[in-house]
Amino acid sequence: MEFDLIFKNIDLFFQGTWMTLRLLFFSLLIGGTLSIPLAIARATRHRWFNRPVWMFTYFFRGTPLLVQTYLVYNGLSQFDFIRESILWTVLRDAYWCALIAFSLNTCAYTTEILRGFIETTPRGEIEAARAAGMGPWLRMRRIILPSAFRRALPAYSNEVIFMLHGSAIASVITLMDILGAGRTLNARYYLAFEGFLTSAVFYLTITFMLTAIFRQLERKLNKHLYPRIATS
């Protein structure tokens, strides 16, 4: 182990962490926002709403994120009409390519998670809302979605961590994320695993912090779902 080389290049890893966190945050933001209307559409029994969303989630959950990233980065750039269009100002940039692929991928997973929890909203809650005179949209907004969000939190925290790990794919399309920093360190000094090991430590730290955040959130938002412990 050559620790001195790791410390000498630790800046690389902090820059990489910044890149990874940016990619993670924005892909979750975009994917998460898009997933709400999609999940509602997917949960309806209406075929015209349900089917297209099902096809979208089926494609993005059925193919590896690496393939999706390659399709956006190398695939689209093969077509002259895309390179000559306004789209190219976005697709030219590896960061945007990664962001598009990651957002769509996490959107597909989040849609399915959310759909599951929308469909399993306790009947009593819906009946109560109906009895109070709420229409379908008000019911969705006030009762079903907030309830689904809370119950989906543990499953969603998994998705966030999967996305963090999936974001390592950014390094194959020239982005200097945490893994990119590790590979650059390895390449610069012809090391076998120092770079990977340091990357692993950085990913572990972020995972640790993310799980801590979600645990706090769950404790706060889902208090009413846990059995009460008698205090005496």
């Binding site: 190398n74 750039s77 093969q78 390179r83 190219w88 030219r92 940039d93 590896a94 020239t174």
Partner: peptide, 8 residues
């Protein structure tokens, strides 16, 4: 080379 051709 691929990315040079693509113009990235």
């Amino acid at each position: 080379n691929l990315d040079l051709v693509a113009g990235r």
